[in-house]
């Protein structure tokens, strides 16, 4: 009976969706904006990845806002969870789970540099291949997550995270201000460097620099968030607060 209801509901949903999308032409020309970007990113900016060009160059200010949103989210998580951090040495004394095995520990030593290199590759080649600062930063943070879950004594230095994050943010804004000073139209975050040739690493003007800054910033933020999450006390056991 339940399965019949579920099937009937699915049919209704499918009918509504098909009805809604029947007149919707996928890939149809609507505003002409798609063709503009596809034509102009390889010639104006010499950037192979149009998505990156839109995110960092045409909508660079928007990306600055996105980075700020991420920063606020990381700060919020740290603020909420800070009181629930364990007192002793940052390690979680109530974590009863056994330590990671020798095989995992040995493999992490091997894999961690490879993950860092992959992350750096992704954000340095943001304007050439799919990916970019956000993705590369997330990959680097997964490397640190691997260290956090396999070595219990591993501790993220929050002062280092804070410095990396702040410097990356300042670097991003500084590039934007340089756009006002040196850019041909004197706009914030405008390209002021030579654009180079298509499909070369040193091309695309400021896009590469901005993505390096974004990559470092995202990696630092996510690593800080992961460290905070790993080190909180497990809920339902208020031993530490009663002491």
């Amino acid at each position: 009976m339940r399965k019949l209801i579920i099937a009937a509901l699915l049919i209704v949903v499918a009918y509504v969706l098909i009805d809604a999308f029947a007149e919707f032409q996928f890939g149809a020309e609507r505003q002409g904006i798609k063709d503009y970007f596809l034509e102009h990113t390889p010639t104006d900016l010499q950037v192979a990845n149009s998505v990156t060009a839109i995110i960092v160059s045409y909508r660079g200010f928007d990306t600055l806002g996105e980075v700020t949103v991420l920063f606020l989210a990381a700060t919020g998580i740290s603020t909420i969870l800070y009181r629930r951090r364990s007192k002793h040495t940052g390690l979680n004394p109530l974590r009863k789970s056994p330590e990671a095995s020798l095989i995992v520990k040995a493999a992490v030593k091997l894999l961690f540099p490879m993950i860092l290199i992959l992350g750096a590759y992704v954000f340095v080649h943001g304007h050439l291949t799919p990916g970019g600062g956000f993705q590369g930063g997330a990959i680097i943070a997964t490397g640190f997550l691997l260290l956090l879950i396999s070595y219990r004594q591993f501790k993220v230095e929050h002062s280092v995270v804070m410095w990396v994050e702040s410097l990356a943010g300042i670097f991003f804004v500084t590039i934007g201000i340089f756009g006002i000073i040196y850019g041909p139209n004197a706009n914030f975050l405008e390209n002021f460097l030579p654009v180079g040739n298509l499909n070369e690493l040193m091309s695309g003007g400021v896009i590469g620099l901005v993505y390096v800054a974004v990559g470092f910033k995202v990696a630092a933020e996510l690593t800080g968030v992961l460290d905070t999450l790993v080190n909180i006390r497990e809920t339902g056991d208020n031993k530490e607060t009663k002491e």
Binding site: S97, P98, A100, S101, I103, V104, A107, L110, L111, M114
Partner: peptide, 21 residues
Amino acid sequence: VFIAISNPISSHALARGAYKS
């Protein structure tokens, strides 16, 4: 090379974690 290292290790960790819990 990456798959050869990471894939067996990850499933080893999963299986060990399941046994330990």
